[in-house]
Amino acid sequence: MSERVPAPGGLVLVQGLVNTLDLEGGVDGLDTADGRARFGLTTAEVPGARDLRESLRVTLLAHAGHPPHREVTPLGVLLAGAPLLVTIDTDDGSARLAPADGDPLLARVAAAIADSLTAGTWTRLKACEAPTCHWAYYDRSPAGRGRWCSMQVCGARAKMRRYRAK
């Protein structure tokens, strides 16, 4: 849906990975060569990427206060396989976390999460409350209490269901 705005910084990688699966339409972007290329995946790496995607989705649902949609490997367990190293730029002395050896996608996700923790943006990345959606979105609401990826779509549907139930 076009009104969905990308997350800031490295969180766009996490958001993009979670959103490779359209629950409503049943389309998985990782099934296509272009979808795999977007994340630098081979066909053999897709099952691991799907596990990571669903662990991320459960975490993003938790950010929004929603229960898990299914049982998954905890994200912390997966991220333990992607150690990060502190690197220092010798020109300006700046420091950053860089992935060590291992699964390239997992390492990039770990680095993006670490950067967002430092920036204070990690918990603003959430998954939509709608069970047929669970799309990852960045909550830009002032209070940080957004519930839907889009007020115009999922939010409107939920409000209409509540109205009709009355």
Rank of each mutant, 00 (worst) to 15 (best):
V14C: 06
R70P: 05
L56I: 09
R161H: 06
L56C: 09
V46S: 04
D103A: 12
G26C: 05
H134V: 07
T87E: 15
L97E: 02
D91P: 03
L11T: 07
A98V: 14
A136C: 05
G155P: 00
V77L: 09
C128H: 07
A44H: 13
A158T: 09
R145E: 08
V86C: 09
L78C: 11
S2L: 07
V109P: 06
P142R: 06
T90I: 11
K126C: 12
D115G: 13
A100F: 11
D101T: 15
A130T: 11
E3G: 09
T73M: 15
L60H: 08
V109K: 01
M151W: 06
W122N: 07
L85C: 11
P8Q: 08
V12L: 07
A114T: 06
L11Y: 01
G93T: 09
A158F: 04
L21G: 01
A165E: 13
V27N: 06
A49L: 05
G29I: 06
R157E: 06
D103E: 12
L21I: 02
P104T: 02
G10P: 02
R4G: 04
A119L: 10
A143P: 09
C133G: 07
V27D: 12
T42P: 08
T42D: 14
R161Q: 09
E71T: 14
G9R: 03
G81V: 11
D139Q: 00
M1W: 01
C149L: 06
E71F: 09
L23H: 11
R96I: 09
A110V: 02
R108S: 14
W122K: 08
A110T: 03
Q15L: 00
G35C: 13
L21T: 03
D115K: 05
A62P: 04
D101C: 07
I88P: 10
G25Y: 09
T73A: 15
T20G: 07
M1N: 09
L56W: 01
A130F: 00
G65F: 12
Y163R: 08
G29K: 00
K126Q: 14
R157Y: 05
T59S: 13
G10S: 04
Y163S: 04
L13P: 02
L105H: 02
H66R: 08
K159S: 05
S116T: 07
W148F: 03
R124H: 14
A156P: 05
A80T: 12
R145M: 03
G26W: 12
C154K: 04
N19M: 06
D91S: 15
A119H: 13
G40N: 12
H66S: 08
W148A: 02
K126G: 10
Y137Q: 00
C133L: 07
V86E: 15
A62I: 10
E71I: 12
S116E: 05
P6S: 10
P47K: 07
G40I: 02
P67E: 15
R38V: 10
L41M: 05
R38Q: 14
T32W: 03
A114D: 06
V109Y: 04
Y163P: 00
G26F: 12
R161G: 04
A130I: 02
I88V: 15
L117H: 08
Y138N: 03
A130K: 02
R161I: 11
